[in-house]
Design a binder for these strands. Structure first.
Lengths: 243, 243
DNA sequence: CGGAATGTTGATATGCCTCAACTAAAGTGG
DNA sequence: CCACTTTAGTTGAGGCATATCAACATTCCG
């Protein structure tokens, strides 16, 4: 398993320029790694965290809890992501974060990160950029849930996750383990579980992709992006060599 | 009309602590004010801006343009907002920004803002926080478009805009000028113009609020927040004295 | 191996979209 | 300033996409 140092520098270098001193400073950050209990909610709505998490292995999700108790999933995060970097400057959580299945995260104290910003502003800018990419992903989710058909919404989500995983070097050729249930997909994309199920079958039939048992298989990337109206520009990442 | 200096310091102080030197440094920022043509699109999808905008007077909106040419509005911004602060660190625009009716904005060069960050890090953190509040607003829009009924979506949007305006001191008692059309509301909330019209009438009938000719009238704030499932926590702003 | 969670299918209900016509308001030019 | 044009708002009717309900199949996990 790659070290915390590897994971974070690799991620930040996907979109930002860091020199050797920046990297060294990052490597020196203290942290606590922790294996989460399955599906553990490790940041709660209303919390005032004093640490930020870095996903080391597995997946985490962010979500709003609605008055009736239902969830609205907001985003999914993979190895290298910092799903609550925002807590550096926004005191109180307006949503929760949980693991998806077995997940390992590293917690880094805010004060250490903030001290680092003084010495190495470009590290701060890289993490700032990281939070801005998050926002771009949220914007795209607004558009999906507001304007796209259920078919396009599903295809778009899988395009995004596959593309991000591809850039981060986490995918196998043509497939990617994404341990989310159909119910969770529905709670992310504003559709019922029945519709998720039927629409996944429709995607299967078009031979663009398959999603089964938590594994995405991309069979025809071009077709999938067309169905999902997916244009990777909003992710602001280096284009992967091959898809 | 308040000066650029007033507008930006007032806004940043809504959520951040700035000392006199920070304020002075902000006041010294060079800018170009410009009266926009009605509904002018002043930042385009694909642009690589070298300045960031500050809304001086009126409103601006951000939106995705969809393959068919339709728009998905992402957020609405009032006096004091910096709708494209993100361009400081994200080179290329993934969405566009336009004025709503008559609008005046100030453009501030990126390089000047970045130079300021070196001397006054807390100004940088305040603007970072500003972009994080943006993200929180997007998250809430994901939830609205994904999970809320059309009635709740409408009520929520007006709650948010009224609350933000109230904090910024831009509202009249119980009313607020919000120059958006029913069609634009529909393109923000993922509903047809016909449904917007009928649902506005329903809101009128409940006596919670009225929206007519670009003026929101809040008749029963408590009821409106209940209908819209609105909890201001996600805006992370100082609570206004009275609503 | 047994129970719980997840996935699948069919039938029915309904909220919202679409289409279409009309009214009201705002902007424009003679 | 008024006639005209354009844009925005309103109303009714009908159809469809997707939610909901309910039963059953499959997979996961202790």
């Amino acid at each position: 398993m790659p070290s915390v140092h590897d994971v974070i520098t690799r991620k930040l270098c996907e979109h930002s320029k860091l020199d050797d001193e920046d990297m060294a400073a990052l490597a020196a950050l203290p942290f606590t790694a922790r294996q989460l209990r399955a599906n553990e909610e490790f940041v709660r709505q209303g919390d005032k965290p004093v640490v930020s998490a870095l996903v080391l292995d597995g997946w985490v999700a962010r979500y709003h809890t609605l008055p009736g108790g239902k969830r609205q999933y907001l985003s999914f995060h993979m190895t290298g992501d910092m799903p609550d970097a925002q807590t550096l400057f926004i005191e109180r959580m307006d949503h929760a974060v949980c693991g998806l299945g077995q997940t390992e995260v590293a917690f880094v104290p805010h004060e250490e990160i903030l001290k680092l910003f003084e010495r190495r502003p470009s590290v701060g800018f890289a993490i700032w950029r990281e939070t801005l990419l998050d926002a771009a992903i949220f914007r795209e989710a607004v558009t999906s849930n507001g304007s796209r058909t259920v078919l396009a919404r599903l295809a778009h989500l899988f395009c995004e996750l596959y593309y991000r995983g591809r850039v981060a070097g986490l995918t196998k050729p043509g497939s990617y383990r994404i341990p989310i249930h159909q119910g969770q997909i529905g709670e992310a994309l504003g559709m019922s579980i029945v519709t998720v199920n039927r629409t996944l079958q429709e995607l299967r039939r078009t031979n663009a992709m398959d999603f089964r048992n938590g594994v995405l298989t991309v069979r025809d990337w071009k077709k999938l992006t067309e169905v999902g109206e997916f244009d990777s520009a909003y992710l602001h990442l280096k284009r992967p060599s091959r898809l």
